[in-house]
Design a protein around this nucleic acid. Structure first.
Ligand SMILES: Nc1ccn([C@H]2C[C@H](O)[C@@H](COP(=O)(O)OP(=O)(O)OP(=O)(O)O)O2)c(=O)n1
Length: 1152
DNA sequence: AGTTGCCAA
DNA sequence: GGTTGGCAACT
């Protein structure tokens, strides 16, 4: 590369803004050894470092013409030209935007640092005083950033920094109350309380919430890092999400990994989870996966997103999922309720509400409204004026937004941005206005003003061709407050005439006035589900090559269906499959087909397989190679499921037939003949009385087939054995008949032992007290808000009854063999079931559940090679038989693993497959036959005066993989709630068996978990534990233990009579789970010690260990379920900034 | 109903 | 850049 001496852009080794005094890069002969080395690095990283001034100018022009609204005339892009006076000017000049380039000047001694400092000062001043929209600054290897701040590759690359400031964003110090005659009627207010009409009311309040840097933040939480760690989410070689800490270094979306590392060597890089070709699970891997044999899985983010949606739905009655990290909330009802509460006089509704105007607002706002949160857009003269009820409504919306964000932060750890406005478009722009961890409220009278900060193309749906066309047609000058221009100069008729599209014209007309009212679509389930992949080079050069990818796609899709099944009572089934293909010429073709509703997911998998081949064949046959070029080599392939229909049981079968696919394609209908019914699954005709049980049989079979696959450990082990012969790598091997009794016993003993507080002296009342405080705090806030707070969001509820007794019996009974493929009423459990029936006189149905439990075991961080052992349980063996035969270390070793005793000097047996991570930790995963655990638990429960232990699968709210529903009729807590659900927690303990935290499959709060762990380690003079890797210190080895809690599901009684229990919406269920955990903690604290322990098993694993208590940990939440016990990350480098401990970040942080 | 293109995160 | 998802317009 030719390097002219002048015009050199500089980057130092750390990718930060260069120091011209010390780094100069010129032609090879001039730059010396160091320079040459630096150049080598730069070149290998594709970061250009030499630019001519002309090129810089060209860039400026492009930036100018592009998405950025820049007034480059104001000052030169030459940094040294910018004087402080000019910068001062910016304020006065009212620039819509400022762009400047961080381009090096010829003279090596030019001080761009000075300029940098000036700008930084200015920037921070502006951002403090104004609602400044800052784009990430830093070195960027592409031309420019688009409006989202993403790096956009448009041709040549250049080092460029851009920031924008926007005018009219002054946050006022005062809010003026200027009551005037109201423009709104009582009816307008009443409409707010009607979910059908609220969005059309002039008093409407819409919220939009956006998770900051979502994927990156997810990874940050998953990895136990803090918001200060520069975490990025990597997909192949490019970043798809960048945390705000990483943005500080100028890292942006679409940067390459190399660029990111240049900009910040300490960047924490988490690659997305991946499927390895041939395997049937996604996981996070500890290497950099390659596209050639991996497929990305974004399911962790979707799953978390669904969980958040449930959270939002628990908060607000009308929620629209807008994307994986965004949703709209119609706050109408909540606002209405709050208004009634704060302004009781409004409760008196006049006779004719449509014609009666509301009274003027009071002179003085109630105290609750006096404290505001975040930015309020001023109406004029930098003042926020509250003059009518719509402003009050908006203020309440803002308060609600703050409340929601605070709760979400507490429950799930996420920081968010929130926008409040009267319509969706305004709310969306508002939430994007200040980020991260901020919120913006736009009063109706401030909308016009607010829009001045945006371009037309900032509106949703206007970001593409259409937006540009409109601007062109209307001859609006981009960057010249074109929204105002359109609003002021075009009537609806004008727009209709100019745009020649009445629909578009009306949309635009309303949009620029903030009057585009759209309903909140209350759907939160997906309508389609796709699995796609781009193929590089010739990796898919003939039809056969894609077949392996089809397998991956289908596994992906079916797993996702399974997830949805687990999470929802309503089972949705796809009826359409679409195949997408793209060739070298970028021609995409698709082909779709319809298939019948199939209940069994394994059956769906087979069907998709068959159909995908059919579709491929058809696509090939119909491919017009003349027009589109050859179909192969292919550059892209994908499969998508759509046409979802609900499997909602018998009552709706007729509906299903009516609205479903064509009759001849359907599964045989489930006909009810007299007292019999015909099973849809197997076609058998059975007595109606056996229907539910029979359903469960199929349900269990389905679970078995989908859940009880090879474990991660198994795959690793098999992979090791067969290294080199990848023949059937993808197929789960037949389960081996090894029951890991020791593990089960161990888990059991832990479950029992750990509950027992008081055995452990070091952790104790202090933590418990703190825990209590935090709970109180939550309750306090909720109460402050409203009496129905409990229903609105998942919060701890009243105390539960005798749940602790569930854990106090070690006489667990093994289960018989349920893996029969034949059906008989009662199945293998006939005797048990009958016994229970006799005992309690309540009919019940057995649920067969197999589940995966993950065991994580960290065995040191000294970097020594960790040996691998492996074990798994057999789900088919007679449990009582095999459970008497512990699998010892030797046997484990004989099965292909070794036991590293040197690492076990604390007596911790190494169980399962270990897997060495870069940071020295190890991960073990085991399959445990949950059923075995559950059976014992249940058996015991039965003895504890629980009338009916069994819950039908219909009643099982199957949100979790590891779980069994318990129908605990008659067990009531103080609040009269029935407990009937069972779950599994993963408890982390150190080698001394002291509790470190809880990893529960669902509802885990990583933040509090981490904090607690920090506290723990601090107690032990280890200093704060900030990152996952620190879990791996020899002093805080971690074991996952299983304990049991009981939660809520709808019982038969609930469904029949109007039970006290609120019928199972998600939030309630969530809430009860929380409550239950609290209960455990309480009972635990009270020193319950009725447990019998399996001491021998315990001793094997933890000789001399202290039994810790879980006191500290029971309120923790974590939801990353599937393979999340694999904490591995592609960690490029430890963050050096991470000395700071995580502060208890609150949403307040960004508000001032 | 199937297919494509656009828009978005 | 890649991997998703919704939807409207067209066939
Ligand atoms: N082209 C894109 C844009 C986004 N995303 C994913 C990654 C993001 O984390 C998530 C949310 O997108 P946002 O546009 O909301 O961006 P972020 O959440 O990353 O950042 P911000 O804080 O600006 O919202 O969607 C993606 O995969 N590809």
């Amino acid at each position: 590369m030719h390097v002219p001496e002048e015009s050199v852009a500089r980057i130092n080794e750390h990718g930060k803004i260069p120091d011209p005094q010390t780094s100069h890069i010129g032609p090879d002969e001039n730059i010396g050894k160091e320079g040459q080395e630096r150049r080598r690095v730069f070149e290998s990283c594709e970061v250009p470092f030499v630019r001519h001034k002309e090129e810089v100018d060209a860039v400026i022009q492009k930036v100018h013409k592009g998405d950025f609204v820049c007034d480059i005339e104001t000052f030169s892009h030459e940094p040294e030209v910018v004087s402080s006076a000019q910068l001062e000017d910016l304020d006065r000049v009212d620039l819509a935007c400022v762009a400047y380039t961080q381009v090096q000047v010829p003279e090596p001694d030019t001080c761009c640092d000075k300029q940098k400092t000036l700008v930084r000062e200015r920037e921070s001043k502006l951002s403090k005083r104004n609602g400044c929209r800052l784009l990430p600054r830093g070195v960027c290897d592409f031309f420019s950033r688009n409006k989202h701040g993403d790096s956009t590759k448009t041709g040549k690359k250049i080092t460029i920094n851009i920031f924008t400031t926007r005018k009219n964003l002054i946050t006022p110090h005062t809010m003026l109350i200027v009551p005037s005659n109201s423009s709104y009627t009582y009816q307008n207010l009443l409409d707010l309380n009607n979910v059908e009409r609220s969005t059309d009311s002039p008093l409407s309040v819409i919220g939009h919430i956006d998770i900051n840097a979502y994927f990156a933040q997810y990874e940050q939480i998953r990895l136990g890092l803090t918001p200060q760690d520069p975490v990025v989410c990597l997909q192949w070689n490019s970043l798809i999400a960048v945390s705000y800490a990483a943005r500080e270094y100028g890292i942006s979306r679409m940067d390459s990994l190399q660029t990111a590392r240049l900009k910040c060597p300490d960047v924490v890089v988490a690659h997305t989870a991946v499927f390895k070709k041939g395997e049937d699970v996604w996981k996070y891997v500890d290497y950099l996966p390659e596209p050639v044999d991996h497929k990305v899985s974004l399911e962790p983010y979707r799953r978390e997103s669904r969980k958040m949606m449930r959270f939002f739905k628990g908060f607000c009655d009308s929620v629209e999922k807008a994307s994986v990290d965004e949703c709209f909330l119609d706050l109408g009802r909540m606002v209405h309720r709050k208004m009634m509460e704060l302004f009781p006089s409004l409760r008196e509704i006049p006779e004719n509400p449509r014609d009666t105007m509301l009274p003027p607002i009071p002179d003085k706002l109630p105290p609750e409204l006096e404290e505001t949160h975040g930015v309020f857009i001023p109406v004029e003269n930098d003042a926020v004026i509250v003059s009518d009820w719509d402003d009050i409504a908006m203020m309440i919306g803002s308060l609600l937004g703050y409340e929601l964000r605070r709760k979400l932060k507490k429950e799930m750890g996420y920081t968010t941005s929130f926008g409040v406005g009267r319509v969706k478009t305004v709310a969306k722009l508002a939430s994007d206005f200040k980020k991260p961890n901020e919120q913006t409220t736009v009063f109706n009278r401030a909308i016009d003003n607010f829009f001045d900060n945006f371009s037309l193309t900032d509106f949703w749906s206007m970001g593409g061709k259409i937006g540009r066309q409109i601007l062109e047609t209307l001859q609006a000058d981009p960057g010249s407050r074109e929204i105002r221009y359109i609003r002021d100069n075009f009537s609806l008729a004008d727009l209709t005439r100019e745009l020649r599209d009445p629909q578009l014209a009306e949309r635009l007309y309303r949009m620029v006035r903030g009057e585009m009212r759209q309903p909140i679509k209350q759907r939160t389930d997906v309508k389609s589900m796709g699995s796609h992949k781009n193929f590089r080079g010739n990796s898919v050069s003939k039809p056969e090559d894609i077949l392996d990818w089809f397998k991956v796609f289908i596994v992906d899709l079916v797993l996702r269906l399974q997830e949805l099944d687990d999470e929802n009572d309503a089972k949705r089934r796809p009826t359409k499959l679409t195949l997408y293909m793209r060739n070298r010429a970028s021609v995409t073709c698709s082909r779709q087909c319809t298939f019948p509703i199939i209940r069994d997911l394994d059956e769906i998998r087979r069907k998709c397989h068959e159909l995908s081949l059919k579709l491929l064949k058809e696509l090939e046959e119909n491919w017009d190679a003349q027009r589109h070029g050859p179909m192969f080599p292919s550059t892209h392939g994908g499969l998508a499921l759509s046409g979802f229909q609900e499997l909602s049981g018998y009552s709706r079968i007729d509906e299903m037939i009516k609205s479903g696919p064509r009759r001849e394609q359907e599964e045989p209908p489930r006909a009810v003949t007299g007292d019999n019914y015909i099973c849809l699954q197997c076609g058998r005709e059975l007595p109606a009385s056996e229907r539910t049980e029979h359903e469960d049989y199929h349900y269990a079979k389905m679970l078995d087939s989908t859940l009880n696959k090879q474990s991660y450990g198994e795959r690793l082990l098999h992979g090791r054995e067969k290294r080199g012969s990848s023949g059937d790598a993808g197929r789960p091997s037949k389960r081996t008949n090894v029951v890991d009794v020791q593990l089960v016993d161990f888990l059991q003993s832990q479950a029992l032992g750990l509950w027992n507080k008081g055995k452990h002296k070091e952790d104790g009342e202090d933590h418990a007290a703190e825990e209590d405080k935090s709970i109180c705090k939550v309750n306090g806030v909720r109460d402050k808000w409203s009496e129905e707070g409990d229903q609105e969001s998942p919060q701890p509820v009243g105390r539960l009854g005798n749940t602790h007794t569930l854990l106090s019996n070690s006489q667990w009974v093994g289960l018989g063999n349920n893996d029969k493929d034949t059906w008989s009423p009662g199945g293998g459990e006939e005797e048990d079931v009958q016994t229970r029936e006799e005992n309690h006189g309540v009919s019940h149905t057995l649920v067969w559940i197999h589940a995966k439990l993950a065991l994580v075991q960290n065995l040191g961080s000294d970097g020594c090679e960790n040996d691998q052992t492996h074990g798994h349980t057999d789900t088919t063996a007679n449990q009582s038989e095999s459970s008497s035969e512990p699998v010892n270390n030797k046997q484990r070793a004989d099965r292909g693993g070794k036991v590293d005793n040197t690492k076990n000097n604390r007596g911790l047996e190494r169980v399962g497959q270990t897997h060495r991570l870069e940071n020295g930790g190890t991960v073990v995963e085991e399959i445990v036959v949950t059923r075995q655990l559950l059976q014992r638990l249940q058996d015991h429960t039965n003895k504890q005066s629980v009338e009916n232990l069994w819950l039908t699968s219909e009643q099982l709210a199957p949100r979790r993989r590891a779980g069994l529903a318990l129908d605990l009729n008659g067990v009531q807590n103080d609040g009269g709630l029935v407990l009937d659900k069972f779950g599994v927690n993963f408890h982390l303990v150190d080698l001394g068996n002291r509790p470190l935290g809880v990893l529960e499959p669902v509802f885990l709060d990583q933040v509090s978990w981490r904090l607690r762990h920090e506290r723990h380690t601090k107690d032990h003079q280890q200093g704060p534990c900030k990152t996952q890797s620190q879990w791996n210190s020899p002093l805080s080895r971690v074991v996952v233990v299983v304990v049991c809690t009981v939660g809520r599901a709808v019982t038969k009684e609930d469904t029949k009579s109007d039970h006290k229990l609120v019928a199972g919406n998600e939030s309630t269920s969530n809430l009860l789970w929380r409550g239950l955990r609290d209960e455990h903690r309480t009972q635990h604290r009270n020193g319950t010690d009725g447990q019998t322990r399996n001491d021998s098993a315990d001793e094997k694993l933890h000789p001399r260990s202290n039994r810790g208590d879980l006191d500290d940990n029971t309120n923790n939440v974590n939801n990353h379920r599937q393979h999340d016990t694999d904490f591995s990350t592609f960690r490029v480098c430890k963050p050096t900034k991470s000395q700071t401990t995580e502060s208890t970040t609150d949403v307040e942080d960004g508000d001032h």
